[in-house]
Amino acid sequence: MSVNLPQLRAFLAVVDTGGFSAAADELGMSQSAVSHAVASLERELAAPLLIRSNPARATVLGERVLPYARTALSAVRSLEAVAADATGALTGTVRLAATPTVCRGLVPRLLRHWRAGQPRVTVRVFEGDSAEVAEWLENGTADAGVLIDPPPGPGVQLALDGYRALLPRDHPLAGEAVVDVRDLVDDPYLVSPGGCEARVRELHRLAGLRVTPAHRVRDLATLISMVQAGMGVTVLSEVSRPLVPSDLVLLPVVPRAARRLVLCGPRGRGWHPAVRGLAEAAVGV
Rank of each mutant, 00 (worst) to 15 (best):
E42A: 03
L110A: 03
D143A: 01
L137V: 09
G117V: 14
W136Y: 10
R57N: 10
L111K: 04
R57A: 13
V107W: 05
V121E: 06
G105T: 13
A131Q: 11
G88A: 05
V65Q: 07
D143N: 06
A98Q: 02
F126A: 13
P100E: 01
S130V: 13
E135D: 11
D129L: 10
L79K: 07
L106C: 05
V125E: 01
L96N: 02
S74G: 15
T99E: 07
T93Y: 07
L79W: 11
F126H: 12
A72R: 03
G62Q: 00
A98Y: 03
E44I: 06
E127F: 01
A131H: 12
T101E: 12
V146F: 00
A58T: 14
L41F: 14
L49K: 07
H113P: 11
V102Y: 04
L90T: 10
E138V: 12
A134G: 08
L61R: 14
E42H: 08
L147R: 12
S78Q: 12
L137C: 09
A142G: 02
D85S: 06
A46H: 13
T99F: 08
A97I: 05
P100G: 04
G105I: 13
L61I: 14
A86M: 07
P67Y: 08
P48K: 02
L73R: 03
L96S: 03
A134N: 07
V107M: 03
A83D: 10
S74E: 14
A116Q: 15
H113L: 11
G140S: 01
T91I: 14
A142C: 05
T87Q: 02
L41Y: 13
L96W: 02
A81L: 01
R124G: 01
E132S: 11
L49P: 12
V107C: 09
V107H: 07
P108Y: 09
L41T: 08
T87E: 04
A131R: 15
T59N: 04
L66N: 02
R112E: 15
E42F: 09
S53P: 00
V125Y: 03
I51P: 05
W114P: 10
E135L: 12
R104T: 12
Y68N: 11
V121A: 09
L73S: 04
A84K: 00
V76S: 01
L49I: 11
R115D: 13
V125N: 00
V133W: 00
A131G: 12
L50A: 05
G62M: 01
L61F: 15
L96H: 03
G88D: 08
P100Q: 01
P55Q: 04
D143T: 05
D129H: 12
A69E: 03
E132V: 14
L111T: 10
